[in-house]
């Protein structure tokens, strides 16, 4: 197991280098003046341009630029954005928000998705099963910005149950409360997928021979279904949820926009919009790293859940 983890961590290095180099090349090698718009309407003074070029090693060949940049990054120096705010500070602030949002969405999809999936699976073909299948299809087929705006309008504006937007300065419990509705919106599509995945797997496992054995052992129906069949059915579901968590930690541009959330997604989006290469490359590098780590955790979890998978 330790060997496996070490091997996987080593495998991450080329992936990380390759992916970040690609991003770096795309952002910094694109034609155009990197100092455009940096000094308002006017072109920047020559001195400033020179300083900027030196700071970012713009006169070196691209691989050298990249190596120098990554060297700084490894030391924790993320540089500053156009607005002269350290990227590291803003990124870590925004990461807290994104992580909270992702946590709410994941909890929502796990609890409601599995619950609905189990309900549908054990009543296959009955009313509740059709209800779950139909409503999840509905959610899957609506674009998330529609769900977001409708939820914001109805629950936030009209009925005033939830805050309409998120206040960047909120802390503690208040920030969780403000992120609740956006989190539910963000998790809504995954709820549908989790429910369907749970249902399909449960239906299949209920027909399995070992479920027949569990009955023949004189176990109660709730133990037969709730432990023997469900334990097997949840293996792919947990894997899906884990991968989804990794994806959600990359930010949620649409949901962040709708609810005015200062998350990672919007940060990268505005970075691209402003051609702020320092922001984009720094943030994306962290995203890639997080994504790779979460995926490693999911794979380890998969081996724990299914003893037939060997990591040796």
């Amino acid at each position: 197991m330790t060997k496996y983890v070490i091997r996987r961590l080593l495998q991450m290095i080329p992936v990380l280098i390759g992916a970040t180099f690609l991003i770096f090349a795309m952002v910094f090698a694109l034609p155009g003046d990197p100092t455009a718009n940096k000094c308002g309407e006017r072109p920047c003074p020559a001195e400033y341009v020179k300083k900027f070029e030196e700071e970012h090693n713009l006169n070196d060949p691209l691989p050298i630029q990249y190596a120098k940049y990554m060297g700084k990054l490894a030391k924790g120096d993320f540089g500053t954005s156009f607005r002269e705010i350290p990227v590291k500070d803003e990124l870590s602030e925004r990461y807290v928000v994104t992580a909270k949002l992702a946590t709410i969405a994941i909890l929502f999809e796990t609890v409601l998705g599995i619950f609905a999936g189990v309900l549908a699976g054990i009543r296959k073909g009955k009313f509740i099963d059709n209800l779950v299948l139909l409503s999840t299809l509905f959610v899957i087929s609506i674009p998330i910005f529609v769900i977001g705006y409708v939820a914001q309008f109805l629950l936030g504006v009209k009925w005033r149950i939830f805050p309409v937007t998120v206040n960047a300065n909120a802390t503690g419990l208040d920030s969780w409360w403000q992120l609740l509705l956006p989190g539910l919106v963000l998790g809504s599509v995954s709820v549908a997928y989790v429910a369907r995945l749970t249902r399909t797997n449960l239906v299949e496992n209920l027909r399995a021979d070992y479920v027949r054995t569990a009955k023949a052992k004189g176990l109660t129906t709730s133990r037969t279904i709730g432990l023997h069949a469900l334990r097997n059915s949840l293996i792919p579901v947990v894997t899906f949820i884990g991968a989804d968590f990794g994806a959600l930690l990359g930010g949620a541009i649409v949901t962040e926009q709708i609810f005015n959330i200062q998350g990672v997604g919007g940060y990268i989006f505005s970075g691209i919009h402003n051609r702020d290469g320092v922001v984009v490359v720094g943030a994306v590098t962290v995203l890639i790293l997080v994504y790779l780590l979460v995926n490693l955790l999911v794979d380890i979890l998969y081996g724990v859940l299914d003893p037939r998978i060997s990591h040796d």
């Binding site: 399995a208 021979d209 070992y210 027949r212 054995t213 569990a214 009955k215 023949a216 052992k217 004189g218 023997h228 334990r231 097997n232 293996i235 859940l305 299914d306 003893p307 037939r308």
Partner: peptide
């Protein structure tokens, strides 16, 4: 409650009849 203590059964394919996890 009779299944197990009174009447018991074994099946053809033991691999699929035992719970894999």
């Amino acid at each position: 409650k009779t299944r197990g203590p009174e009447i018991s059964m074994i099946f053809q394919d033991a691999l699929s009849s035992l719970n894999p996890v």
